[in-house]
Design a protein around this nucleic acid. Structure first.
Length: 800
DNA sequence: GCCGTAGGACTACCA
DNA sequence: ACTGGTAGTCCTACGGCG
């Protein structure tokens, strides 16, 4: 018996001599595996008297016998209430569904939990924690204790460059020209099979493509890489390498077992797993950050993610055009830049990983999910993971996933959401904005909103929380969701206090900061999960109550502000925009304190900021104010702009820049004349035909297969024409198109940038510039004609 | 056949 | 494949006109 210390990284399962063993991937000095015998099972809602019949089940699949190995009665809670269930053990994890199906006359639970996840939950194990354990050979005897300390792994980022004379490279024909890598120990380089013009220290020239691939695998093995990063590597680099290895008749030995990788489909995403290592495709993580709003970029490219998250500009990206890469390879002079480009790609990928990994590690620890799964999870899966873990630890049965029918039923009727106040359009001075900190999480905790506390019978009516919808939530026993969420919110508050006392450069700071980031993401996801149609803990009543209370608190705050003599200009979900008028800032702060004194303990109205000026506009049609669209100037001269065309990617750069400059002229300089001059200048520039096509590109995403659209939009039309011209368009591609002169409808005129030869100045003036600036300038009494004509306006006479 | 418009399809934003 | 609320574009169908 040996005692050891190692970090738990992940788990899967494996059969040894016909028995099911969970394999824990551990990190000590190196990565190694510990085997632990464990029996698969699920719960059946059947009387104990059925045990014998269940044990005697005679089942087979594909000629192989399926056995129920054991049945035992257990006490658990179901939907928050105590219940007696049968725990039905199966011979193998993959046989659980068949056994459950054979017993479909009874209700069943937890029959579709991945076995390794089952094990981790039952044992209460947390990835990335340091465990002290006892083992005999490769078999785990017991876990003794653990410390809350994140593991550091040997990391490497890689990237391949492929020959692409046809635009997109073809894996069966076009070779890999170079493979670059960058390791956390500082080693980096480019492997290739053509010489640089003059020797370059980081370039290693091999005999050919075959040797280049072999050398890369060798380095992965020699460096004993534990974490391998790529950017879209699951869908591009790894499958491409595999195809090229095959074309060269060599194995792709990336795994620690000498194997290549396995593709696993997780929902809609595809993930490559490398045996004995952790492969993390940063593209998925960047996409995740995009969906939760933590990252705002027009396209989820490595270059954009690097700029936004690392805060630096990529050194070589801008110098290389994707479509020109093959030419650079064939040109000895340009090849030098291509080597640098490739080298930087992996180094920047590694740097990006450095900014992302700490948060991923913390999400892994908090949700008790191995990091590989975390890196390809949706918010719903993360929230669910943690609820499942806590549920098991409390002896509660995990609710089943809804059937397709239930999902449809749940989705059929929407839940009423937040309140948005209609603003009066205009230009205002001296505003103050307050918002509720974590409105929905604090409502859920304060009012104990949970599927299990709903309409409880345990407490007296006066002890219950009664939501504005009439739903009642138990006032005595805390529900599962409030329990988990309360923990998250409190832990995060504690961390934020500690962070204030720490030095920003210290290593503890980085981990703690990442932990609070992870907690924030989770806290903000619970409301969405309660109202998510595929959720295991879905509750329409809960979802409706959260938003109803939200509307209640915000409208109450508006009423209080008005009673205190403030004009409330605008409000959206959890924020109020008030006009200070001649009142001093302190009066607004007193109002805030007053509101807070009457709110439940965990709810708080906070000062967002004071603003010197603000612009609210009308909707395009009609005269009523537009919601979710405003621009503010704070006391430090910074602009806060929401909803305007200039923050949208589906507007051209000329229109966005013009609108931005107009807002600047009005907010900062307070000059209408300057704003008008800016517009006129742009209109003239467009008319003269000298605006570069790049400034006229409109980016729009095709969210489905181009063949599945019912109507032809400009982006679809442009995409079709591009395809016909041999440009590859993916099913979810971002289409950057220009409105050209040829054609009658806008769709006909739309051409992908690569195919556009000219532009329709009239379209850009009438449909991009004027609509985007007019709604702002109309507030200052500027008309359309004031903007269209050069110099002094002479009325209609000048036109004819 | 041309014009104007209502309604639908669709995207991207705010919170 | 976490929620709902919102603005806005272009397309399509349709009715009126003549």
């Amino acid at each position: 018996m040996k005692v050891g210390k190692a970090f738990l990284i992940s788990a899967d399962y494996h059969l040894v001599n016909g028995k099911t063993y969970v394999r824990l991937l551990m990190k000590g000095k190196k990565l190694f595996r510990l085997y632990d015998y464990y029996e698969p099972y699920f719960y059946l809602d059947a009387p104990e008297s059925e045990s014998k019949n269940i044990l005697a089940l005679d089942l087979a699949e594909g000629g192989k016998k399926i056995k129920v190995t054991k049945v035992e009665p257990v006490e658990r809670t179901v939907s928050g209430k105590p219940a007696r269930l049968l725990k039905v053990y199966a011979d193998y994890p993959f046989n659980v569904p068949a056994i459950r199906k054979a017993l479909s006359g009874y209700g069943a639970y937890e029959y579709n939990i991945p076995f390794a996840k089952r094990y981790l939950m039952d044992k209460g194990l947390e990835p990335f924690s340091l465990y002290t354990y006892e083992r005999e050979g490769k078999f785990l005897k017991r876990m003794i204790s653990h410390e809350d300390k994140p593991a550091r792994l040997k990391e490497m980022a890689f990237d391949i460059e492929t020959y692409n004379p046809q635009g997109m490279p073809r894996k069966d024909i076009d070779p890999v020209m170079m493979i670059s890598y960058a390791c956390s120990n500082g080693k980096s380089g480019v492997l290739t099979w053509r010489n640089p013009k003059a020797p370059m220290p980081f370039v290693k020239v091999l005999a050919g493509e075959k040797e280049t691939i072999q050398e890369f695998c060798k380095i992965v093995r020699e460096e004993d890489v534990e974490m391998l990063y790529g950017y879209n590597s699951s869908q591009f680099d790894l499958p491409y390498l595999e195809a090229r290895a095959k074309a060269n008749n060599i194995p792709l030995k990336l795994g620690r077992d000498g194997g290549s990788f396995k593709i696993s489909e997780r929902g809609l995403t595809v993930e490559a797993k490398i045996s004995g290592r952790i492969h993390m495709d940063l593209f998925h993580v960047v996409k995740f950050l995009g969906t939760i709003g933590a990252l705002k970029v027009s396209k989820l490219t490595l270059e954009n993610a690097y700029r936004e998250l690392v805060g630096k500009e990529s050194e070589t990206k801008s110098k290389v055009q994707k479509l020109e890469i093959y030419k650079m390879w064939d040109d000895e002079d340009m090849r030098t830049l291509l080597f640098q480009y490739s080298h930087n790609d992996s180094r920047e990928t590694l740097e990006l990983a450095g900014h992302i990994l700490p948060m991923e590690v913390q999400l892994s620890k908090i949700t008790k999910t191995p990091i590989f799964d975390v890196s390809s999870s949706t918010t719903g899966q993360l929230v669910e993971s943690l609820l499942m873990f806590v549920s098991v630890s409390k002896g509660a049965v995990i609710p089943n996933k809804p059937s397709d029918f239930e999902v449809k039923d749940r989705s059929a009727h929407m839940i009423q959401g937040a309140f948005v106040k209609l603003p009066t359009p205009g230009i205002y001075e001296n505003l103050v904005v307050f918002d509720f900190r974590g409105l929905y999480p604090s409502i859920i905790c304060s009012h104990n909103i949970d599927p299990y506390t709903l309409n409880c019978t345990d407490c007296k009516p006066e002890e219950c929380h009664v939501s504005p919808t009439g739903a009642r939530f138990c006032g005595k026993k805390q529900g599962l969701v409030p329990f988990v969420l309360d923990n998250i919110v409190r832990t995060r508050a504690g961390l934020k206090d500690q962070l204030k006392k720490l030095d920003k450069g210290s290593p503890e700071y980085a981990d703690m900061f990442a932990r609070q980031q992870a907690l924030k993401i989770l806290a903000n996801s619970y409301y969405g999960y309660l109202a998510y149609a595929r959720s295991r803990w879905y509750s329409r009543d809960c979802g409706e109550s959260v938003t109803a209370w939200g509307r209640h608190y915000i409208t109450q705050t508006i009423a209080k502000a008005e009673a205190a003599g403030f004009e409330v200009l605008y409000a959206d979900t959890d924020s109020v925009f008030m006009l200070l008028g001649s009142k001093p800032n302190e009066e607004a702060m007193r109002f805030m304190q007053n509101v807070n004194s009457s709110l439940p303990e965990r709810m708080e109205l906070e000062l967002e900021a004071f603003y010197t000026r603000g612009v609210f506009v009308t909707k395009k049609a009609g005269t009523s104010g537009a919601k979710k669209k405003y621009a503010l100037l704070d006391e430090k001269g910074r602009m806060k702009i929401r909803g305007f065309e200039l923050v949208r990617r589906d507007w051209s750069k000329v229109a966005k820049e013009t609108q931005s400059n107009v807002l600047k002229a009005i907010l900062k300089d307070g000059s209408k004349d300057k704003a008008v001059a800016i517009v006129k200048e742009t209109v003239e520039r467009l008319r003269s035909g000298t605006v570069p096509l790049e400034e006229l590109v409109v980016n729009t995403r095709l969210n489905k297969d181009p063949d599945k659209y019912l109507v032809t939009s400009p982006e679809l039309s442009a995409a079709r024409k591009a395809r016909a011209a041999g440009i590859r368009i993916d099913s979810d591609a971002m289409i950057g198109y220009v409105i050209t002169k040829s054609g009658s409808t806008v769709s006909e005129k739309a051409q992908v940038l690569e195919l556009a030869k000219d532009y329709d100045a009239n379209y850009y003036i009438e449909h991009q510039i004027l609509p985007s600036v007019l709604k702002i300038l109309r507030e200052l009494g500027v008309s359309e004609d004031d903007l269209k004509f050069k110099g002094k306006q002479t009325g209609l006479a000048g036109f004819f």
